[in-house]
Amino acid sequence: MDILWFVIFTVLLIGYFALEGANIGLGMLLPALGRTQEGRDRIVAAMAPFVLAGEVWLVAVAGALFGVYPQAEGEVLFGLYPLVVCLLVSWIVRDAGLWFRRRTDGPAWRAGWDRMICLGSWGLALSWGAALTALATGLSIVPAALAGAAALAALLAFHGRAFGSWLLPGGAAGATTGTATGVPPGAVPGGTTTRSLPGPAVATGAGRGAAAPAVSAVLAAAPAAVLLAGAAPWLLEHTAPADTLNVLSLMILPCAPVMAGAQVWVWRTFGPRSAADRFPSFF
């Protein structure tokens, strides 16, 4: 049972970096990829349906940490105190930007919240990078954390870029040639417009369609996966007693198929072929 819950915990953390990592990365690149307000609107509208389904993986990670590893929860979160505060404030600022940007008219309002989305996304990436480094080096916040922060930020930005070119094959500028002419998304080298999203798929000449964001998702989740592999013995030592795990299994496992099904539904409904441009976005 403790192995099963370790696997669930790992899946949740990897799922967070693979899925929400894409939204964070795209948020980081928002001003770079969407140079006009129209371009930023298209990027945010394309990623918006994935945000609620993505960030909830971290809520689940924290809940599982409390339920499955109560003896580790306080130690980990308290040990990373300033980083956890930074991470939460960044998360709040990013979410506020998404929820508020279209709530009043006026270019300054929306541009201002777009800056908050970018700032919050950078804060999330950097504090996660520093936190993972600190965890790997035994909860000491060392100078290496700076390098770790930069490395994870680069990985998430790369992932966000791949996700963006998969979602918006015609680029942020609005050229919809990719879907309109039936060319597979991701195979279009961004047309010839300068504001397109060439993306890693094109840059490396590998992959079509969903292959590029899938590869970048693996890269984005790799640091957390490596860390968990290393921390496995320590975490397993801190597992809650069997009685607690039985309760969790009984209450949560029956919901797992619905949870997975709803996530798949999100990705099928709002993927690149959903002609999102026709639908006024709430974010």
Binding site: V56, V59, A60, A62, G63, A64, F66, G67, V68, L248, M251, I252, C255, V258, M259, A262
Partner: peptide
């Protein structure tokens, strides 16, 4: 708390 986040809030 774990049941709330995983089974309820996640959905």
């Amino acid at each position: 708390l774990a049941i709330e986040t995983l089974a309820a809030f996640f959905l």
